[in-house]
């Protein structure tokens, strides 16, 4: 997408020249965009500043006045009062198991749907696409009943399995589209040489789709890390809580301690933000490969 065909090079240059000529429309646009962007980052600035202010400074200084003395003790206090070590560990364990496992299972299924002809392929594919659209928020109560009947409430598998189930449709959908685009000759040659589909999947298709897998991995990391509604229903015991649940409860208990509350927000949001800032490129490609053909 980034490489422009050569016959566009001239136009490319022209566009650059026209922006050098300081097109007034573009300048106006730029000023408007920066203004909107400032509004968009303002909440982050406000949260970070507040998280570093002492209780006295929160009530006496303005919203965008930087803290004079950095009250890092807000972070350590929130960390221990909100039992964050525990919920952080739970979030890490659930995410680290769920994301690669779910993606691998999805890739297997997507390969079979794309490259092995079965009578039911079309029906299965429709079922999968349908799954990308159904809101799990509607099924929280029956999900609780189901997981409870397996005796898995307040366990890691009890939340990982539903997470995988609701991640499968989107991932299979994307990977299926990708696998289908890989030329038949590649797998047929290997089949004639006597390789079975497991080998072809592992040796040819997985390596080829690494960039897509990376995009899906990062996207899935963030949505698993952030998931709240299912965890709320399936993890009742405080010792099993994930970070979003811990933050919610912290807000309920210590909402008047603004510095610590905002420190808790920053700590919850930071891992996903760091992952996003590092892997920005993959996010966009992962999101758009499914929804819009690029």
């Amino acid at each position: 997408m980034t490489a422009m065909p050569t016959n566009h090079a001239a136009v490319h240059l022209e566009v650059q020249l026209s922006s050098i000529k300081r097109d007034p429309v573009l300048i106006g646009l730029w000023i408007a965009l920066v203004a909107v962007a400032l509004v968009w980052v303002a909440p982050f600035v406000f949260i970070v500043f507040t998280s570093l202010k002492t209780p006295a400074a929160v009530t006496s200084t303005g919203a965008f006045v930087p803290p004079t003395e950095l009250a890092f003790e807000n972070y350590s206090a929130a960390w221990s009062r909100g039992n964050f070590a525990n919920s952080f560990l739970n979030s890490v364990i659930i995410t680290v198991i769920k994301v690669p496992l779910g993606l691998f299972l999805s890739a297997m299924a997507a390969y079979a749907l794309a490259k092995i002809r079965l009578k039911i392929t079309k029906a299965l594919l429709l079922l999968v696409v349908f799954g990308t659209m159904i809101p799990f928020q509607v099924m929280l109560a029956p999900l609780f009943t189901l997981v409870n009947s397996f005796g898995l409430i307040d366990t890691y598998p009890g939340v990982i399995l539903p997470y995988i189930a609701f991640g499968v449709p989107y991932q299979v959908f994307i990977l299926h589209g990708f696998f289908r685009g890989i030329p038949k000759e590649l797998s047929e040659a290997a089949l004639i040489d006597g390789a079975n589909h497991f080998t072809i999947f592992r040796r040819i298709f997985l390596p080829v789709c690494l960039p897509v897998l990376a995009a899906l991995l990062i996207l899935d990391f963030v949505s698993t890390w952030n998931e709240f509604a299912m965890a709320l229903v399936l993890l009742q015991d405080q010792r099993m809580w994930t970070l979003p649940l811990g933050l919610m409860s912290f807000q309920g208990q210590f909402s008047s301690n603004y510095g610590q509350l905002n420190a808790a927000i920053v700590m919850t949001v930071l891992p996903a933000t760091i992952v996003y800032l590092i892997f920005q490129r993959y996010f966009v490609s992962g999101l758009t490969s499914g929804a819009v053909k690029g």
């Binding site: 079979a112 999968v128 399995l161 449709p169 497991f198």
Partner: peptide, 30 residues
């Protein structure tokens, strides 16, 4: 295991079984 249909089944079942049990079944149950 040489039969492509069997291979397809092995590849499909894990993901689709979890999907059916933990996503489709609750929807029917609701």
């Amino acid at each position: 295991t040489h039969d492509p249909r069997v291979q397809a089944l092995v590849l499909l079942v894990p993901a689709l079984a979890i999907y059916a049990v933990f996503a489709l079944y609750p929807m029917i149950n609701v």
